[in-house]
Design a protein around this nucleic acid. Structure first.
Length: 840
RNA sequence: GCGGACGUGGCGGAAUGGUAGACGCAACCGACUUAAAAUCGGUUUCCCUUGCUGGAGUGCGGGUUCAAGUCCCGCCGUCCGCACCA
């Protein structure tokens, strides 16, 4: 019987050995250079999926590689354990969210352990435990004291049946995703974090993040959305309701100021509200504006509508010019000043609006001065030459814009301003399963922070989910407290924090977890920033921006001083699978289909025809999910890990296939057979040694660049070369080194083989092999010979052959001679050791 | 609408401007075997009946260069992000 590697035995055995030896426990006091490798921690949904496996395998390879290179590695794991699914489960299954979450964590921890990740489990944390969120409450109070927390009325999507706030993604066709009830807009007083204080710093800091994907940096830059322009007030003609004297506007196109033909204010603007109080028509117009949905599709198709207030403003550069003031549904309240001046000729929205309501359309930008009277048939939004614009005429758009700002500042009616698209971060959630906001509301003193010696504010366990809404609101005892300031009867804040707050600092808590404070500054700074962070691109904006903000906020509070939390970022692709649908349109899982006669796919139970759909991300709705657990049972951890790293570049999607996993399992056995070859032969094998050292260099470089698919290919090549080699001392050495190179990817196999070969210690503790430069190159090279750039032949020559010799050898080749005929070559290009190109 | 990425065999994908298709999957042929599994060897970009003095070939059309998958210009297609941001 042939000796085979048996993962069912080896995997648990080595996992136990690593745990006993505390192999992956990170020592903060170690004198070794430190490397913090982190993957985005999972939400404990109940089961590990292939996306997790791929994500954590990549991080694990890097962590093990760094360890072998001599780094002290921090590679932790935890649970992003607050969130709505737990509450939904509570509602549906009558289980407590905590019980549900903790059971899920236990199951998923076991699953992760089966894959053999080199994780420091001693630092495991779960955001739903008071030991974590209590410290988060302390940090929240720090931010409050630093002036980074404020309370504001804001409009939310309100589900009147479930009595809860919905995120935009939970509003489908204007209805609550769960209740199906039409969503209302409601004003709620909510807690906000002042992320806009850091808008410029968050933007300019992106430039230093050289180890981040350009795509993510760009996405964040666009999200922050910096624009330069002019802010000024239009003076109102006459008296107006509310007593306002002017309307502030912001524009990035101050060069078009002479093209203004109306001023539009948002339905939420103070002046609009003041008007509504006096004019029923204005009030009803504003009410209809608020009805529409907030989804992207609805906004795009929404018709521009306006209401003429009858008010007028005076143009700042021409007092004889009066512009009508409209309330318009397309003006956003929370960008700029909530008001704008409309230039129909040079803005698509203003054009649509002006066309509809018969407002003047005046050209003030043209391709040249002669085109000043060309008709405007559609909005011309590009830049050009200012026309019909008094003192601006003839200037290019950029110069004209600057000139207007200069005059405004000199005359004192406006100023240059930098505007950001970024909004402050609303962190209030009307949910139970989250971090309680540590605030007490007192009728006398207003909102007061919970005294620190009363932290953590622990979530009450005795809550009911049988009625919609936030159970904290209904919990009588929990909400009743005395005001810490004046002692009067007061009530607790019942909103909880957005779960993105939990994930904004967990990487700091991993680095340092004292009992009495969120983290120890010196210890945290010893590990941070995270050297390599790995996760899905879906977090490119929110999570990564919030964490960058939180780091800066901590610096503001004096608790921590690091510039950026994540030095290197890598966004990995998804795991995909083919989809299948029966003829009547039911999605079928891969288990429900089989290959019928003639290679057609049929449904196993009925024999009915099946259409193969697109390759898509694994999802329950499409039923194209492959559960990792049975795959692990069948093939073992190493085959799964190897397949996750093979084939596709890690930033791209990986197509799951049964052939792929079988190929990976085959490779594991191939390496095992090599490792079991008899050793002790003598003799050199220079070509194999060269191959070996080239592979050492290639694999190291590939892992360093997170190009795992290339590392895999290089190891395949080395494996084939060793299989073909005759016994020799060099072959023994090559096998030994192969195990070291493969160890980060297939650690159980590597340990088992290492031990069977009588090597001392564990391979997890071995050093990474070093390549010998002298062995990276061959003595002989193959030189390509081209005629007119087309390959005609090759020649083998000693390395370092001179240009003249190479040219002579190439010209002597029969194929070259026949190509050239009698003509002498016009020119010969020689690239030493690579190529000769003869130009005829 | 704005911004970005990508397009190479049957499939996933390799290729510092210098021999396109490494490596894997799949398929086919063969060896071993009573047989199967496992394993090993070989073939596989396309076209011409065949080719180690055949031709074409990296989405399409141009260009730069001795030389282009790679650089530049213009199209086409696919995917992703943002989206009434003044």
């Amino acid at each position: 019987m042939t000796d085979r590697f048996d993962p069912a035995v080896a995997d648990p055995a080595w996992q136990a050995r690593w745990a006993e030896a505390n192999s992956f426990v990170a020592d903060s006091a170690s004198p070794k250079p430190k490397a913090y490798v982190l993957e985005m921690f999972p939400y404990p949904s109940g089961r590990i999926h292939m996306g997790h496996v791929r994500n954590y395998t990549m991080g694990d390879v890097l962590a093990r590689f760094r360890r072998m290179q001599g780094f002290e590695v921090l590679h932790p794991m935890g649970w992003d354990a607050f969130g709505m699914p737990a509450e939904n489960a509570a509602i549906e299954n009558r289980v407590h969210p905590g019980a549900w979450t903790r059971a899920n964590i236990a199951a998923m921890r076991d699953q992760l352990k089966r894959i053999g990740f080199a994780i420091d489990w001693s630092r495991e944390l779960s955001t739903c435990e008071p030991e974590y969120y209590g410290h988060e409450q302390a940090l929240f109070l720090d931010l409050m004291e630093a002036g980074l927390v404020f309370r504001k009325e804001s409009e939310v999507n309100w589900d009147p049946v479930d009595m809860t706030v919905l995120a935009n993604e939970q509003v489908i066709d204007g209805k609550g995703w769960r209740s199906g009830a039409p969503v209302e807009r409601k004003q709620l007083s909510q807690w906000f974090l002042k992320i806009t204080d850091f808008a410029e710093d968050l933007r300019s800091g992106l430039e230093g993040l050289e180890q981040w994907p350009d795509k993510v940096r760009l996405m964040q830059e666009n999200w922050i959305g910096r624009s330069e322009g002019l802010e000024f007030g239009f003076r109102l003609a006459g008296t107006v309701p509310g007593g306002a004297t002017d309307i502030a506007v912001f524009t990035t196109r101050s060069d078009t100021i002479f093209g203004a033909s109306f001023v539009a204010i948002s339905p939420g603007h103070r002046l609009a509200e003041a008007l509504a109080a006096e004019q029923p028509e204005a009030a009803s117009f504003i009410a209809t504006c608020k009805q529409g949905g907030t989804t992207a599709a609805e906004i795009e198709t929404a018709e521009k509508r306006g209401f003429d207030t009858g008010l007028e403003v005076i143009h700042p550069l021409d007092s004889s010019l009066k512009l009508p003031v409209w309330i318009a549904n397309f003006v956003l309240m929370d960008y700029g000043t909530g008001a704008l001046f409309g230039v129909p000729a040079h803005d698509a929205r203003d054009f649509e609006f002006a066309t509809k309501y018969g407002l003047p359309i005046r050209r003030v930008v043209a391709a040249s001065a002669e085109d000043c009277n060309a008709p405007v048939v559609e909005a011309e939004t590009g830049s050009g030459i200012a026309v019909n614009s008094d003192f601006l005429d003839g200037l290019d758009s950029a110069t004209a814009a600057g000139e207007v700002i200069k005059r405004a500042e000199t005359a004192g009616w406006g100023r240059g301003k930098t505007q950001y698209r970024l909004r402050d971060w609303g962190v209030s959630r009307q949910r139970y399963w989250g971090t309680p906001i540590p605030v007490i509301h007192c009728a006398q003193c207003g909102p007061v922070g919970v005294p620190r010696d009363q932290l953590p504010v622990v979530l009450p366990e005795d809550v009911e989910f049988d009625v919609p809404g936030n159970p904290l609101d209904r919990h009588k005892a929990w909400g009743k407290v005395d005001c810490p300031k004046c002692g009067a009867a007061a009530r607790r804040e019942t909103d909880t924090l957005d779960t993105f707050v939990n994930s904004s600092w967990y990487f700091i808590r991993f680095a340092s977890q004292p009992r009495d404070q969120p983290f120890d500054r010196a210890e945290a700074e010893a590990w941070l920033p995270v050297a390599q962070y790995i996760g899905g691109v879906e977090h490119a904006i929110l999570h990564l921006l919030y964490a960058r903000f939180w780091t800066r906020a901590l610096e503001r509070t004096g608790k921590l001083s690091i510039a950026e939390p994540f030095k290197g970022l890598f966004t990995q692709g998804m795991v995909t699978h083919e989809t299948y649908q029966s003829m009547d349109g039911r999605w079928l899982s891969p288990d429900e289909i089989e290959l019928g006669e003639g290679g057609a796919v049929v449904e196993r139970s009925t024999g009915g025809g099946v259409s193969r759909g697109r390759i898509e991300k694994m999802s329950k709705s499409k039923k194209n999910v492959i559960d990792p657990e049975p795959i692990l049972d069948r093939y073992g951890a190493d085959a799964v890990r190897w397949f996750m790293l093979s084939d596709s570049p890690p930033e791209r999607d990986l197509l799951w296939s049964i052939g792929g996993i079988e190929g990976a399992a085959r490779f594991v056995q191939r390496v095992w057979r090599l490792a079991m070859l008899p050793t002790g032969a003598v003799g050199e094998d220079l070509p194999l040694q060269r191959r070996l050292h080239r592979t050492i260099a290639a694999v190291g470089e590939a892992i360093e660049g997170l190009q795992f698919n290339k590392a895999v290919a290089a190891l395949y090549e080395l494996t084939s070369a060793i299989e073909k080699a005759a016994p020799s001392a060099a072959r023994d050495e090559a096998v030994r080194t192969l195990l070291l190179l493969a160890a980060p990817m297939v650690p159980h196999l590597a340990e088992q083989a290492w031990s069977r070969r009588g090597e001392p210690g564990m391979i997890a503790d071995a050093g990474w092999p070093v390549h010998d430069h002298a062995l990276l190159v061959d003595d002989e090279v193959t030189i390509a010979v081209q005629v007119n750039g087309k390959l005609r032949d090759t020649l083998t020559a000693p390395r370092g052959l001179g240009r003249d010799e190479a040219e002579a050898l190439a010209l002597a080749l029969p194929k070259v001679r026949s190509q050239l005929g009698e003509q002498p070559p016009r020119k010969v290009i020689v690239v030493p050791d690579r190529l000769v190109n003869i130009v005829a």
